[in-house]
Amino acid sequence: MKKEPEFFWLSYNLLEISWKEGINEETLLKMLPIKAYLLKHLSTELREIRMGYHRMTLHFKEFISEPIDLNDIMQLIENAETVKAPPRKRWYIPVCYSSDVAKDILPLSSSKRIPVEELVNEHSQREYVLFFYGFLPGFMYLGGLSERLYTPRKAVPDPIIQAGSVAIGGHQTGIYPMDSPGGWHVIGRTPYRLFDSLRKKMPPFLPGDRIRFCPISLNEYYMLRDNTELSLDHEVM
């Protein structure tokens, strides 16, 4: 058995740390306190840490006074295991699944032979775990999609998927934070604005948090959409 975690230097200042391969919450919950601990204890040496499902890469500043010693990092990781993980939250995000704002829900329903109502239930009665952000600013990588909803990405991506679109791609589901080309199937739309860079608003969800999608009507969607200060229901897990 390989020792865990594994270390790999990609460059003089990039160190990748990998845990057992796979998309699982257990690995994420192991990585999160370690990430927080390393950021805190190496704050003068680190530029940032980037996360994947089972890996994180430490990006060190180009010029630091002391060379990084791998043993020190291993020690920090060991120490981090004794640290209590920060509290996690559960968020409720309103989503309208009407075909008026979700252009792929009808074609997906017929190609998968799942009635629309069942498809909505399958998507909205699950709880999703936020693993990390990537692809676009504010784009969440969510784990926990029902196997029945797994759908290969479109062979030819759509030129524009609108901001707020809730979509399915492969084994994942997510929300487009801004207009973007994309190959995922749009099954809903949230009136909530995830990312507003001009107002420097970051999404409130943090890796480790859970997300639930709450179905709303088209009327509710239009009413909530005009509320730029819309805040989301949430609770500490």
């Binding site: 990609l10 460059s11 990039l14 990748e16 391969e21 980037r50 994947g52 499902y53 994180m56 890469t57």
Partner: peptide, 10 residues
């Protein structure tokens, strides 16, 4: 691979 960190120069 499962989505993993990338950087300029990867």
């Amino acid at each position: 691979i499962l989505s993993s960190p990338v950087f300029p120069g990867t």
